[in-house]
């Protein structure tokens, strides 16, 4: 059974006088365990698609069905719960809370979801940091970490709630190529070893080549080619 089913998604933005079709009748299915790359030029609607799939944005029309719930019409509470426990986001600019330590950042989805007690959260947070090789940086603040380390903290945060899907929006965009490769390897390993469904938005062909499926989006329309790994 498909993990995520998108049907006829549309979304338009108004930039001044210009109407931009970010999504123009997008229909696609993502299976559990997929490693999907969404590629395309900037402004093509990649991020919009990722945000809609991640429950962060709503389409103008069409539906996104996850576990029988239509994200397009779900209430804020349901949508937030979905983002909290089913989705892990990794952003280009890391989006860590700068005043919190790595560990505090990692456990923040647990705090917001009201999951567990302090000790359990701590254990889960340290385990997630362990997984990305940063257990020894748990009490460092983001400003005391390198770009690659910050992104790994963000990955640990995305993983802490055992999500079914991780959505990474240009995860290597702010990293040099060596760190970028490291981060992509990290994400690919999670997909391979832990079976986490991975959606990576990128315009880096090197990144796209690791994926099992590559969706190309141009002017809000999606075309697919099956990638080779």
């Amino acid at each position: 059974m498909a993990l995520i089913e998108c049907t006829g998604l549309t979304k338009t933005y108004r930039l001044g006088d210009e109407v931009v079709k970010a999504l123009d009748g997008v229909t696609l299915t993502i299976e559990a365990g997929d490693f999907v790359a969404i590629a395309g030029p900037s402004g093509s609607g990649k991020s919009t698609l990722a945000n809609v799939i991640g429950g962060l944005d709503r389409p103008d029309s069409g539906q996104v069905v996850v576990d029988g719930m239509n994200l397009a019409t779900a209430r804020d509470k349901q949508l937030s719960a979905y983002r909290n426990s089913h989705v892990g986001f990794v952003f280009q600019s890391f989006n860590l809370q700068v005043h919190e330590t790595a560990l505090e950042n990692v456990i923040s989805p647990l705090v917001i979801g009201g999951v567990g007690r302090k000790k359990e959260r701590r254990r889960a947070g340290l385990a997630a940091l362990e997984k990305v090789g940063l257990a020894d940086r748990a009490h460092h603040r983001p400003t005391q970490l390198s770009g690659g380390q910050r992104q790994r903290v963000a990955i640990a945060r995305a993983l802490v709630n055992n999500p079914s899907v991780v959505i990474a929006d240009e995860p290597t965009g702010n990293l040099d190529s060596a760190r970028g490769v490291e981060v992509m390897e990290e994400l690919a390993r999670l997909n391979r070893e832990d079976g986490i469904t991975l959606i990576v938005i990128t315009h880096d062909t090197g990144v796209a080549e690791r994926a099992t499926r590559v969706l190309t989006i141009v002017d809000g329309k999606v075309t697919e080619r099956v990638g080779g790994r």
Partner: peptide, 16 residues
């Protein structure tokens, strides 16, 4: 503003 965005992304409801 950005912190609020992050909190929303990791699952905070409007109510929270």
């Amino acid at each position: 503003t950005r912190e609020i965005g992050i909190m929303r992304a990791i699952g905070a409801t409007k109510r929270t």
